[in-house]
């Protein structure tokens, strides 16, 4: 249905190319902000890095500011934003971290898991807000900046930082290290690695079991990486694919009216539906990532063999 145009010489609308350009990161050769190369790593800011920075700065400022304000007031009743924040924090601590990690370590691991949740949910949600597109429209009709301006360089469509495998891989790497730290803190370094395999089995079993368990250890963060990134990317691809009907039909019938008609009758209602679904997915995926992190950390602490 949504195959790119056959033959690369065609100059018409190519939905495949457009969709990939929208969901993938912008090229490092044309960064949004140029930064120096340190130790062979190019630190220039691309679309997804910009989104990461925006999310990180916003979260840091908003949460630190509201928590400080709450701590300074005389009565211990939160109001406004802090009220919602407290409800979320309490929900995560009491129904995600506590049942999995246990009473002893709940305060050790709640901060990490809360950070994960707020970061992922905000990054996911920011991908749904078409801020760059709005900026582009403003630029096109009001500002008229030139082709090389920052506005035109950031304009590669909306970007979900968590739709990039590198971002989710970094998050999953933190989970992976947290699992090892949690096990080491609870049982000591050597005992943690002994806990990886069940004890008290005949020695030939261990020849098979140890590699399987070690692979299982690597698979868990990998599953976290793929699930979050694929889900975030998938929703955007679906929305863009449905929207590209407008251009496909305009081209097919050589008439803008056909495209707009299909857009109004088919694409728009479908996109509204998918977007509503996306709002749920934004929450569910952030929630699943935090839940699984808590479960994995809990498995390293409360060993059942």
């Amino acid at each position: 249905m949504m195959m790119p145009d056959e033959g690369s010489e065609s100059v018409g609308f190519n939905p495949g190319e457009v969709i990939i350009e929208h969901v993938s990161n912008s090229s490092i050769d044309h960064p949004i902000f140029e930064l120096p190369t340190v130790l062979g790593i190019n630190f220039s800011v691309t679309k997804h890095v910009l989104m990461l920075w925006i999310v990180a700065v916003l979260l840091f400022v908003l949460i630190t500011w509201s928590t400080r304000k709450y701590l300074k007031q005389d009565r211990p009743i939160p109001t406004g934003f802090m009220n919602g924040l407290e409800a979320v924090v309490q929900f995560i601590r009491d129904s995600i971290v506590l049942p999995n990690v246990g009473k002893k370590f709940v305060n050790t691991w709640t901060p990490l898991i809360l950070t994960f949740f707020f970061f992922i949910v905000t990054a996911n949600a920011f991908g749904l807000i078409p801020m760059f597109e709005v900026l582009g429209a403003v630029d096109r009709f009001i500002l008229h900046t030139d082709h090389e301006s920052i506005i035109n360089r950031v304009l590669h469509g909306g970007a979900t930082a968590t739709g990039n495998y590198n971002v989710t891989a970094a998050l999953a790497l933190i989970t992976f290290l947290a699992i090892i730290v949690a096990g080491t803190k609870a049982h000591g370094f050597i005992q943690h690695w002994k806990n990886v395999v069940p004890s008290g089995l005949a020695w030939p079993v261990y020849i098979i079991l140890i590699p399987i368990e070690l692979m299982g250890m690597l698979v868990k963060p990998f599953a976290l990486t793929m699930r979050l990134a694929a889900n975030m990317m998938g929703g955007h691809i679906a929305i863009l694919a449905i929207l590209s009907f407008v251009f496909i039909f305009s081209e097919m019938f050589q008439s803008v009216l056909a495209g707009v008609g299909v857009g109004l009758v088919v694409s728009l209602p479908l996109v509204v539906g998918v977007s509503a679904l996306e709002i749920i997915i934004v929450l569910v995926q952030a929630y699943v990532f935090t839940l699984l992190t808590a479960v994995f950390i809990g498995m390293a602490i409360n060993v059942h063999h």
């Binding site: 692979m215 299982g216 690597l218 698979v219 868990k220 990998f222 599953a223 976290l224 793929m226 699930r227 699943v288 839940l291 699984l292 479960v295 994995f296 498995m299």
Partner: peptide, 14 residues
Amino acid sequence: ATASYTLVGAVLLL
């Protein structure tokens, strides 16, 4: 959830 995601993840990764 852990088990199901691990099954898919293991097949994909390996």
